[in-house]
Design a protein around this nucleic acid. Structure first.
Lengths: 133, 133
DNA sequence: TTATTTGTATTATAATTTATAATACAAATA
DNA sequence: TATTTGTATTATAAATTATAATACAAATAA
């Protein structure tokens, strides 16, 4: 599992780590059901405080991407969310990104091609057992 | 020009304002060449400090969405950007958003439909004069 | 020329956020 | 019973965010 962090970024480390774990699940580096490194292990690996990792894990739990058991640790388990709130979140983020792209001269075709490439690269979420979710 | 701000959000006001102005250009509320309200006027309108507005304008200038003249004020003038850096920014944001959507159960079709709706709603950037950019 | 309006800089202040460090605790497991 | 888990606590420090009051340089209008 590759975690890319930019310590000089203005984006908080816990947020970068949260994003990297979400992307890791999408890429398939992290399978559904797979355990994440312990808070202490992850903190040592990436060279940050344990509470920074704990915060990232806590956010991922609240967002419904992982489950956390005491002793058993953190485990990948994305929960579906067909709420209007989540749709609006996606719409708002997408609106901003498409607007920025448009104003900067990226064609809508290029934008759709990018989207396709990204989607294809992450197609087929698999569990630890191997079956497709 | 409608500016929607959430004062209880964790996103800084200057960043929300920056986003709202970008979206306003995309929607056509702000035409190319059109002047933005003065820093003081905008600050009064939305009820924040002048320096908060100044910071938002300054970011938009640095990102190449507006131009700023002393005395003449801030003016909408998006600059094209075909740099690799900008492409990577879009790719990274898009990757995260598609991954989140996928994990939450939004189909790729729905995602593309959303993208289409958003793009259609902002088609045809116009200048103050009326000609299409 | 003079007064006014523009964005911006400065200074001070305050609250919040972010991150670290050291320690401790509750729960579950071996 | 000892160990490992996520988490809570406490203290500390730095950076960020926002406000307030004031001032400045540049450009325009009177």
């Amino acid at each position: 599992m590759i975690i890319k962090l930019d310590m000089s970024s203005s984006i908080p480390i816990y947020e970068q780590l949260r994003n990297q774990i979400v992307l890791g699940i999408g890429r398939g580096d992290l399978k559904i059901g797979q355990g994440l490194p312990t808070v202490r292990q992850m903190a040592e690996d990436i060279g940050v405080n344990t509470m920074t990792v704990s915060k990232a894990y806590s956010i991922l739990k609240n967002e419904g991407y992982i489950e956390i058991d005491r002793r058993h640790g953190a485990k990948v388990k994305p929960k579906l969310d067909n709420s209007q709130k989540f749709k609006e979140y996606v719409e708002n983020e997408l609106s901003l990104l498409i607007t920025e792209s448009r104003l900067k001269g990226i064609s809508f075709n290029d934008f759709l091609n990018m989207s396709n490439s990204i989607f294809i690269a992450m197609k087929g979420l698999r569990t630890l057992g191997g079956e497709i979710q």
